[in-house]
Design a protein around this nucleic acid. Structure first.
Lengths: 176, 176
DNA sequence: GTCTTCATGTAAGCCGTTACATGATTAA
DNA sequence: TTAATCATGTAACGGCTTACATGAAGAC
């Protein structure tokens, strides 16, 4: 019985971040925490072990750097790593298993009152995220030197368009 | 070290289905496969073991029924089961860990060509789902007797509004 | 001095998917 | 008679989260 699954995509998220330059595990974690976290969340403890695995596989290089007495392990992507990243990037995107608890509850709602309560709860959540996105947009707009600026802004606006359409729909329903 | 996690929501999906009446594991599976599957997918093998667990816990009652020589196990929800369901339904909805591979790729795109390819791929997928939804809508509209008809239609149209907004956005971007 | 941030992990254990298994009935 | 559908599961194993651990440097 052989399982060749490799569903774990943490590696691609890490390799993708390293495309922009060498970083420590901590820096990768921090970057994800303020950028990909809304559409791609990694748990705290996934980054470091995966970096070790990637190093063993030759997809990243590890270098120990001392800042004063403080030891850091800085990782950089290798050619092999770039090839693996590109292989993933170019392959068809597999959908995640859908698991939307809000819609599941909506499906089981029995009357308009329950529905409106669900809409209200959802609206509050979505508006919070929208506010966050707007802040990120401002930050991104003020940057002029990054080569990824345009594409990241586009990705962000894709998310914003979504959220705004949802907010409009929910507000409309709520007041009906 | 005590873990009180109970993140597994399969039980609520099952209890929710049983609210509409008794069913076998197979029927629950089939119903989910043609209704919740777009926003809540259960793997093949989750239903039966969970029904056994729920029976042990007294949340459902099991009854063996013979149809000719064929044996079936029909489950119905108990009062305890209804209380558990309601407890979940009324509690705040916890967001799933975001894992959107399409957005992750978009985040790592380097130029407009890559972006447009991703948009195109996404568009094809979303249009397929939209077609499916439209079929379900037709089916639902033709039913007049179900007490859940109105609420299920609303849930569906929430999804449709989403998809249509996304399709519009993607088409717009593609042609820019 | 103490709190926050930097920096890096391990272990336990639930979660979920895939592969594999079995057998009856019914439609073509 | 063969394929599809009904009907019900088990086993293996990778995936992922949460809790727990450690220690230095810098800010206040």
């Amino acid at each position: 019985m052989i399982f060749v699954r490799l569903l774990n995509k943490t590696r691609y998220a890490i390799l993708g971040v390293l495309l922009d330059g060498p970083a420590t595990g901590y820096e990768i974690k921090a970057l994800m925490g303020r950028s990909t976290v809304y559409f791609w969340r990694e748990s705290d403890s996934t980054i470091y072990p995966m970096l070790k695995v990637l190093a063993r596989e030759g997809k990243v290089l590890s270098e120990i750097v001392y800042v004063g007495k403080k030891k850091k392990e800085v990782f950089s992507i290798t050619e092999m790593g770039q090839i693996e990243f590109q292989g993933w990037f170019d392959s068809p995107t597999r959908e995640e298993t859908p698991r939307n608890e809000f819609l599941l509850k909506l499906f089981f709602a029995t009357d308009r009152i329950e529905m409106v309560r669900l809409f209200q709860e959802r609206l509050e959540k979505v508006e919070k995220i929208h506010t966050e996105y707007k802040k990120i947009e401002e930050r991104l707009e003020s940057i002029t030197d990054s080569p990824r600026r345009t594409v990241r802004l586009k990705a962000l606006r894709y998310g914003l368009a979504h959220l705004e359409s949802e907010i409009k729909w929910l507000n409309n329903e709520k007041d009906k």
